[in-house]
Write a protein that binds this DNA or RNA. Structure first.
Lengths: 208, 208, 208, 208
DNA sequence: TATGAATGAGCTTTCATTCAT
DNA sequence: AATGAATGAAAGCTCATTCAT
């Protein structure tokens, strides 16, 4: 019922327990990677820059803790998805109707963007910066929870007839928009933004 | 009155006239760059690959015609914007109303995406791939023509009251969506897609 | 009819002609590689050391002229094999008998080792130093010309019955021996050495 | 009277007695090193791979027990030479003649290669893989026992006149050959191989 | 104009070794 | 006696850019 948790599809369950020190170092490196990717984009976020950001003595230390760059990126995504998942779990209750679900979806996504703008920028930079080969499957996965809400509303009669895929794509992209806007306008009021989106899509989806 | 020409902001007026040979070479390189960036993404579109695509003997030739990579990218954007501009000029007549203008805006953008998918993919790969330092000004410039339509509609009473910036951002992103979808679904019917968007935003903007 | 030319199996016919300058540079790099590999062994012959030996400004120049280390090594082998081939072509006439062929094989191999000790050391360091994954096929290829001589002698009645494979392996290794000995005893007299080997294998192979 | 024990030249007599635990650990590491070097070659046998093979928790443990990689390699050689020495001591009785000694030398070497192929491959990978700076002294030491046999035969009149150094080198290399052949032909029958070598060198050495 | 040669910084990754605990 | 964390040098390779011709 959230916008990203479905992407937990990237998570690999870790077999071996990590020591406290190792976990701390990995967390530190992941944090530095998020910071760096958010700031410079994926391409320019080299091990050298990440090491500098984390005040590490050597890029070798990153390689020591992560098998390769792909594993580091995967771990960054894990971290972001975990945060999103935790946020959403707390934020959302059982929605009583499709329109309520849609409203909550929009609001919760923007609230998270407001709470974790750096993580959100890193996430989008990874997906857009060519880190991963473009994967239509993950695109579809990202749309799925939205489409579920929309179909629910059409079946219940709350929503009018429309192409679910088009509407879902538009909704998904509408909540990603502010993440970029925040870079240019940090003071952007996402509460107002969310209210506007809620109205916009209520009008666009409701049975006339 | 189009979606991108405002970005002519990127254009640098060239002081010196170019010889025919030079213009032809530059055009050839730009075409190869577009092809390569569309296919591989900005990061992997090195001078070596672009030269290969253009069947050039040396990457030095690219440097000879373009001061640096940034200038090449800027010229690619010029080219794309010029194409878009030409397309729009032909496509659009003087709109009789704000809602007609909005409808035409949506349809024309998707028509262009259908007609020039390679140029469109290149364009978005450049913006998203970290080629340019993120530039809020260009973001604002991209929104301006949409905002103009929206304000017009509000002033004329066709449109309800809403936050123009939020609505414009949502509209802009809604027409960019299909460019990405085309990668996974080349057979996507953009005519239908456009009709859905037109309905969606008519409902979202009209005075109730 | 020589000991190594069969390994021309490694040669790739080059499609594109190389400019004079490029050929010269490649030759210079190959020469430096041979020198370095002969002296330090394959493992320690890094691009950095080869560049130093060739007085190049950057290891990047090696990568510029050779796609990767494997291609450089392949080119080194080409060079050595070409030298051996030219040497053998001049040295050997049509042998009148198997025992004459065997004698010439032994002598020619040692003469080449005397004339080109550095190339020979480089060659063996490449094969023995783990440069190439151990390849039974190339081993078999190296033995083939010897085995052909031996079978000829057995069929003609000049040679006694013996296991051709064992004899060929022993002969092959016997002519490689001096290449290593030369490192410790540069003044080693390979003419005498050859005469001793000729006698040794005449006694070992002749019909009693 | 064996082919390698003379190389005990590499052994460093250890001044300090080692505890049982330490000895066991060292033996475990040495065994893993032999296995790894035999399988991957010297170059690719990193501490990391050896530690993995030995199921050690850290490469640091190797450094703890061995001053550096050279000492580990030296200890591996010790181990192999000790095994060879023990094998030979059991295998060989007092030879009645030089030709019997030569026959036994050849047979015993090949028997050991058949019994301990892993140790033999490791041994040769170390010598050939550039682990040690090429050492003419060790080469000479390896030839010494063979040369002793040959001189004995010449003095007793069993053997003809020949250059002892050339013959010894040829014999030494002839028994090393099968070690490599085993990699490509594991089913190679070394008993037959030994019989062929015995005949070969009897004919090559005997007084006519 | 165009070419190919050259440069040097940068990339990720592996390595033997050190060190505190 | 052993661990795992950390180090910094070195590896092969790619890159945008410069330059002489």
């Amino acid at each position: 019922m959230d916008g990203f948790a479905h992407l937990s599809y990237f998570l690999l369950m870790q077999a071996k327990a990590k020591s406290f020190t190792e976990s701390a170092r990995r967390a530190q490196i992941v944090a530095a990677a998020i910071e760096t990717i958010a700031e410079l984009g994926y391409t320019r976020a080299s091990f050298a820059r990440i090491a500098k950001q984390a005040k590490l003595s050597s890029t070798g230390l990153i390689s020591y803790h992560f098998a390769n760059k792909e594993e580091l990126v995967r771990t960054v995504l894990e971290d972001v998805f975990r945060e999103i998942g935790a946020f959403m779990a707390e934020r959302m209750s059982e929605p009583a109707s499709a329109s309520e679900a849609l409203r909550t979806y929009l609001e919760a996504n923007l609230e998270f963007a407001a709470a974790q703008p750096t993580r959100m920028r890193a996430l989008l930079n990874i997906f857009l910066g060519g880190a991963l080969d473009y994967d239509p499957a993950s695109e579809r996965a990202a749309l799925e929870p939205v489409e579920r809400i929309l179909r629910w509303g059409q079946e219940s009669g709350e929503f009018r007839e429309f192409d679910v895929h088009v509407m879902a794509t538009t909704i998904r992209r509408s909540v990603e928009g502010p993440v970029f806007l925040l870079a240019g306008t940090p003071e952007l009021d996402l509460t107002t933004y969310a209210a506007e989106l809620v109205t916009l899509f209520e009008l666009a989806t409701r049975r006339q």
